[in-house]
Design a protein around this nucleic acid. Sequence first.
DNA 1: ATATAACGGAACGTTCCGTTTCGTTCAAGA
DNA 2: TCTTGAACGAAACGGAACGTTCCGTTATAT
Lengths: 217, 217
Amino acid sequence: MARDKVQKTAAGAAEKPNTSGESADGKSRHSIGARRNPEAEQAILDAAEAILKEKGPGGFSIEAVARRARAGKPTIYRWWPNRTSLLLTVYQRQKGAFDTFDSGDVETDALDFLDHLLAYWREGAAGQVFRSVIAEAQSDPDAAEVLEAYSHERHQQTAGIFRRGMARGELRADIDPVLAAETLASFARGRLLIGKLDVSRTELAQAARQIVAGLKA
Amino acid sequence: MARDKVQKTAAGAAEKPNTSGESADGKSRHSIGARRNPEAEQAILDAAEAILKEKGPGGFSIEAVARRARAGKPTIYRWWPNRTSLLLTVYQRQKGAFDTFDSGDVETDALDFLDHLLAYWREGAAGQVFRSVIAEAQSDPDAAEVLEAYSHERHQQTAGIFRRGMARGELRADIDPVLAAETLASFARGRLLIGKLDVSRTELAQAARQIVAGLKA
DNA sequence: ATATAACGGAACGTTCCGTTTCGTTCAAGA
DNA sequence: TCTTGAACGAAACGGAACGTTCCGTTATAT
């Protein structure tokens, strides 16, 4: 039970060689006083995002994030209660604002929606992060709740494409615009989860046409 | 490096009290000679399936399966190279044969497909197992490959609904039946992954109608 | 009788989690 | 000015679960 109190005086240890080789600058962050250090937060989020992009959800551990960010694990636990909440923070930070598509033609809007969404997932870490959240939501109730809320909100927004079509008289009045939006988004998500994001424009156009055609007046 | 060779003679340890309390019978399986023991395999698969159903993919570890099955971990590793392959075995074992829907009306078939699929996922462990496989596929390349192959095969089968409709002249000739099947299945999978399997028959009918309507001649 | 192989038990070393302790660095308040 | 207090990184902790390996036991097959 005897704890080891030998604390390496640490004064002379300022120039520890950077053995991990994952961070660019060899400098070590310090406290900036009795307040949160934005640099630390930034470094942690950057590291988390990079790890998610490179290793996927499997390699995403607090340990790994702390190593890469050159941060102490306590610093992470001070601001995020657990792994999932850190994951969700990265996710919130990643998901960019989405345009509302309004070309005046529903089928064009649907195609643009699919095209932009797949492209958005293809480039950068966004796709990988979203995959991670979905995977996490299959076992973690917190992530599941966030995913459901987000999906609901997104489908409502996407439904605007069809609501506008209905208002124009282009679509039938007895359709459910949210259901149509969900159909469209589910198709895209299916491709994301199966790793087939490279869809030709023509195939995407065919998908959009088939999904939209049944809604027309 | 000195390995600990103290092997507790183990002869008198035949009646170890059952502390885990997860298995019904307190008896311990033994080798049945120089061949595989079907009871062990069965117990392992049963335990794996039960854990998946109850705890989800998060609680699914070799350790937990071995405990519940009253099997040694080496026994599991003897027959399955890793966690994922055991997961996939359970998955293959779970997925029952699916009917081919052929009522003579595409919209009815599509509705039946959705209805049966969601019901199938709702009851039993099948839904949870499939969720697990999808989640696993987001980080494990082996699982990803299996998932993609399975999806492709299933969509081909489901496409039969639309191919028959085209043959009957009920659907247009320029549609892609596999794409339509994927749209249908993706909708269902979306609901599975988001935990909203309880869909009313009327909402399901609306979804089937909207998806199918655009394909009609 | 002997060889072979599957079985469960037990322990290995490793990784990660979440926590605690320690010395340092500042900002805010007395 | 000086003290207090909070956030920082580093290091180590106990605990859990991992995959792996050795072991003695069991029973079939030769």
